[in-house]
Amino acid sequence: MNKEFTPRITSFLCKWCSYTGADLAGTSRLQYSTSIIPLQVMCSSRVDPVFLLKAYLSGSDGVLMGGCHPGDCHYETGNYHTRRRFALVKEVFDSLGLESARLKLSWISASEGPKFARVANEYTEEIRKLGENPTRKSIFL
């Protein structure tokens, strides 16, 4: 595997928790992986499956979704719906022979700056092991 490989991880983070968590990681001067490309969404449940698939097929090596912990969603139940939907997206990826390991969901609260940094780093490491997204070579958009 190419040593310099820097994965690109498209990250959909909800405004109220995970994005704020990422901010906290930044303002606390915690080092976290530069592979993370954060995108703010109002709630994790705003993420339609098409966001995930589009990110994946456009060549993201990994896709990360961040939401509030169950019970803490700013819109009360959004993340419970996210959880169901995400389970199915993963299942469909698996059954079509796409790499579902390139999709991750994590609950990160606004006060969990260190957790955000850890998840970012661990996930980047996982993706580094998986290597480049193979669809980059076979699919063009």
Partner: peptide, 29 residues
Amino acid sequence: RFGDVAGLDINGKPAMSDFKEDEKQKFIM
């Protein structure tokens, strides 16, 4: 996973607009 069959139970709720608090979430980091 969710024990629902689309459109079978008029008193139910469609699976994707429903949830249980303590659902399987092994796949979550």
